[in-house]
Simulated assay, not measured.
Amino acid sequence: MKRTGEFVLGIIGAVGYTFFTFIGIILIWFQNNEELMRDSFQRVVEQNPAQLEVMDIDLFISSIQNVSAVSILLLFAGSLIAGIIAMIALRKNKKPILAGILFIGAAVISTIFSGGVTIFAAIFYLIAGIMSVARKPKVTV
């Protein structure tokens, strides 16, 4: 039985999680560069002075630094790795149940812990997981 649908959905989801992983890397880099944060904040204030006149730079920096970017990065990278392992398990229809569990688990966990940010990539993983678990090979008599 071919698992092309699951594999394609897994690849699309993996591309989404790759994007979020790169966003996490950029967030960590941004957190470690306070001068860049100050410059970015000043540019935003200059473009929208009415909207941001209450917020000051120190509050902005502390709010950015309070986000645990490393844990977010690990969540996204872990979901990406789980999807890759699931796609390897799907090759030649070896372990579709394991692949389905990995896809579904990565989708649910990443969506819950990211506050719904990864919903786009998670939908593809979730559909691939359900298809992996539900589709059974035809029995020939």
Results as ranks from 00 to 15, higher is better:
120 F>N: 11
59 L>S: 06
78 G>E: 13
49 P>V: 04
92 K>F: 07
137 P>D: 04
33 N>K: 02
137 P>E: 10
55 M>T: 11
130 I>N: 12
27 L>C: 12
41 F>D: 01
14 A>Y: 14
103 F>P: 13
57 I>D: 14
132 S>F: 12
42 Q>W: 09
8 V>A: 02
91 R>P: 07
51 Q>D: 06
23 I>Y: 13
20 F>N: 01
23 I>E: 08
104 I>E: 00
42 Q>T: 05
59 L>G: 15
62 S>W: 01
27 L>M: 04
25 I>N: 08
4 T>D: 11
24 G>W: 09
118 T>C: 08
97 I>T: 15
35 E>C: 07
99 A>K: 06
37 M>I: 10
75 L>N: 01
21 T>A: 02
139 V>F: 15
35 E>N: 04
63 S>F: 09
89 A>R: 00
19 F>T: 12
115 G>W: 01
108 V>L: 13
55 M>Q: 03
42 Q>E: 10
116 G>C: 13
112 I>H: 11
116 G>Y: 07
113 F>T: 07
4 T>A: 05
49 P>R: 09
84 I>D: 14
88 I>V: 00
7 F>D: 04
134 A>F: 08
17 Y>C: 06
80 L>Y: 05
1 M>D: 12
115 G>C: 06
128 A>V: 08
54 V>Y: 09
20 F>T: 13
23 I>H: 01
42 Q>A: 08
37 M>T: 10
76 F>H: 06
69 A>R: 01
67 V>S: 12
74 L>E: 03
90 L>N: 00
98 L>W: 01
24 G>R: 03
90 L>M: 15
138 K>Q: 06
65 Q>R: 02
80 L>N: 09
141 V>M: 03
120 F>R: 08
